[in-house]
Design a protein around this nucleic acid. Structure first.
Lengths: 129, 129
DNA sequence: ATAAAGTCTATACTTGGTATAGAGTCAACG
DNA sequence: CGTTGACTCTATACCAAGTATAGACTTTAT
């Protein structure tokens, strides 16, 4: 399989696949005689794994940690549980931040719901304070 | 006032102040004979304005739009109201995304609350699917 | 006079990709 | 056999919003 096929199958762009390779997420791949990347089923599986992790907003470093763990099946998985728990807690914190932000913005928006001049704009005056 | 004083007064770092200047958020500043940036009260006010906008997660482009508007006091402020409404709606969308993410992560975390081997880790098996 | 603190510019780095340029490769068609 | 078109290659630059240097210059204090 060449990179274009892999891109179509996985939904990752060609550049993204090369990017993941450079970041060390796609190990030990082969090249054809014409220096083309050659992929097998395993790589597609790996890319889908990465894609799923990314859709959960994990960083590349986190994904790399998970992938490295996968190659050590006899070790304890406690570090994985910890990683997910930490990630979840980060998400919860971010939600709280954004909810506070939302309240501020709603409050500010309410200062100027009509069409006034810039001089009399409740929003700008609020921000200026 | 020199940049170090401004940094202390506003809580922006020296590099950030220079960065904002390069981005066009701090117009027309003077230089001393030794080529040092010279600031007045107005600049500090402007920096605090920027800081408040940034604390509301507005982009630099958005802040620039607001600052440009401030120099046209007789125009309508409808574009400002629109900008804030759009920003608020972006925040709300992001909160919804993160709440969905949170559910997924909680679900995934529940697949493996004990300490198992990597091979048997409910989280990794979930992700692998 | 000299040392320390402050400032200057320019550049590189971060994250997670995206978007080129210019060169090389491969398959099909006439 | 040549050539066109589709594909791939590497290398580089770009985005946001700063942060962090290096090396040179200025000012302040002793």
């Amino acid at each position: 399989m060449k990179i274009g096929d892999v891109a179509k199958t996985t939904g990752c762009s060609i550049q993204t696949i090369r990017f993941y390779e450079k970041k060390g997420l796609l190990p030990e791949l082969k090249r054809s005689s014409g220096n083309y990347r050659v992929y097998d089923k395993g790589t597609i599986e790996q890319l889908l794994f990465i894609k799923q992790c990314r859709s959960l907003d994990m960083s590349i470093t986190e994904v790399k940690t998970l992938m490295d763990s996968r190659s050590k099946p006899d070790q304890s998985c406690s570090n994985i549980n910890t990683l997910i728990a930490k990630h979840l807690s980060d998400v919860i914190i971010r939600i709280e931040e954004l909810n506070a932000l939302k309240s501020s913005l709603e409050n500010m928006a309410s200062k100027c719901d009509q069409d006034k001049t810039i001089r009399d704009c409740g929003i700008l005056n609020y921000l200026h304070t």
